[in-house]
C-alpha cells in the first residue's frame, strides 16, 4: 500500500501554513496526526498534490483553562487528552472519548483537531463537542474566526472550514458545579469506529433536576447528531431510569444511521437509544459526585 505522489511542506509558522494552503487550494490537505489522512492516501481512496504538515508549527499543542474556558490546541494528541488531569477534572466526558478513539498507538499521533476537521460522523470527538457546546477556532488568510460547534459539521466529510483555514483551537466552556458528562461507545473491537455512541453532558440544579443537558450521537447519520428533543425533554426533569429511557427514545428518533458491517439501521437506532440512556446515567452519577 503506497500513496500516490505528492509534495510535502513543513511550514514553521501558522501564517506560512495558511499561505501554502491558500496557494494550493483544493489540491492541498492539512497533515496533522495523519492517522486518517495517510491511510486514505495509501489506499488511494483520497489524493492530495500537496500535504501541508502543521507538525512543526510551535504552539498548537496545549490543554489549559482560561477564564472559565477549557482551551485545547488543535494539534493536541489524543493521548495527551487521555492523560490530562485537567481534562479528567473538568471534562471527564472528554477523557472518556479520547480513550476509545482507535487504539493507543494511533492516539499517540492522532489529534483532536484532525478528528473534528475530518468531518467523519464516525469520529468520536464531534458528538462530545456537541454535548459540551464547544467552539472551534479556525485560522485562515483573514485571521481567526470562532465557529460554534453546531455550525461546524456541514455534511459527510464536510465542515465549515474554508479553503486555507486550519482548525487551531477548541474552546469548551468549563461545566458549572454539579455537572457531569460521559461518552459511551459500542464497538465491535478495539480500533473500530462506533456501531453507535452517545455523548451526554448534564448540569443539575439545587433540587437535583436537570438544568441543562447536551446529548449527541456518533455514527448516527451523515453528520454528528445533536439530540435537541431529548435535551429539551430533560430540562426540569429529575434524573431517573424513566427520564433516561425517554431521553434515549427521543435521541433514537433524532438519528438516521446507515447500514454497514456494524449493523442494520434498526439495530443502530436502538443502540443510540440504549447508549444514550447509559451515557445519561453515567453523566448524572458524575454530576452527583458519585
Amino acid at each position: 500500500m503506497i500513496p500516490s505522489q505528492f509534495d510535502y511542506h513543513a511550514p514553521t509558522t501558522l501564517a506560512e501554513a495558511v499561505a501554502l494552503l491558500s496557494r494550493f487550494g483544493e489540491g492541498a490537505k492539512v497533515l496533522s496526526g495523519g492517522q486518517s489522512l495517510l491511510p486514505l492516501l495509501k489506499l488511494r481512496l483520497g489524493t492530495a498534490e500537496h500535504l501541508v504538515d502543521i507538525g512543526r508549527i510551535p504552539g498548537l499543542e496545549y490543554i489549559k483553562e482560561e477564564g472559565g474556558v477549557l482551551k485545547i490546541g488543535g494539534r493536541t494528541r489524543e493521548s495527551a487528552l487521555e492523560q490530562s488531569e485537567l481534562v479528567k477534572a473538568k471534562a471527564p466526558i472528554l477523557h472518556d472519548t479520547a480513550r476509545v478513539i482507535a487504539d493507543p498507538l494511533v492516539r499517540n499521533l492522532a489529534t483532536v483537531g484532525g478528528n473534528l476537521a475530518h468531518g467523519d460522523p464516525g469520529n468520536d470527538h464531534p458528538a462530545t463537542m456537541l454535548a459540551l457546546d464547544a467552539q472551534v477556532v479556525a485560522t485562515g488568510p483573514s485571521g481567526e474566526r470562532v465557529i460554534p460547534i453546531d455550525q461546524f459539521f456541514v455534511g459527510l466529510f464536510t465542515t465549515a472550514l474554508r479553503p486555507g483555514e486550519i482548525l487551531t483551537e477548541i474552546r469548551i466552556p468549563v461545566p458549572p458545579p454539579h455537572s457531569g458528562g460521559a461518552y459511551v461507545k459500542l464497538e465491535r473491537k478495539v480500533g473500530d469506529y462506533a456501531t453507535a455512541a452517545a455523548a451526554a453532558q448534564v448540569a443539575l440544579g439545587p433540587n437535583g433536576a436537570f438544568v441543562k443537558a447536551g446529548i449527541a450521537l456518533t455514527n448516527a447519520g451523515p453528520t454528528p447528531v445533536r439530540c435537541t428533543k431529548a435535551q429539551q425533554f430533560l430540562v426540569g426533569k429529575r434524573p431517573s431510569d424513566n427520564s433516561f429511557a425517554e431521553a434515549g427514545r427521543l435521541a433514537a428518533e433524532a438519528c438516521s444511521p446507515s447500514a454497514d458491517r456494524r449493523g442494520a439501521v434498526d439495530y443502530k437506532r436502538e443502540m443510540a437509544r440504549v447508549l444514550t440512556g447509559r451515557a445519561l446515567k453515567a453523566a448524572v452519577q458524575r454530576a452527583e459526585g458519585r
Binding site: 500500500m1 510535502y8 492517522q35 500535504l51 487504539d103 493507543p104 498507538l105 494511533v106 499517540n108 499521533l109
Partner: peptide
Amino acid sequence: THCGACTVLLDGTPVKSCTVL
C-alpha cells in the same frame, strides 16, 4: 493502521511507522 507490526518509538512514543512519512 490496525496491526502495529510496524511499531517504533518516535521520540520515545510508540507509533505505527507505516502511517508516518
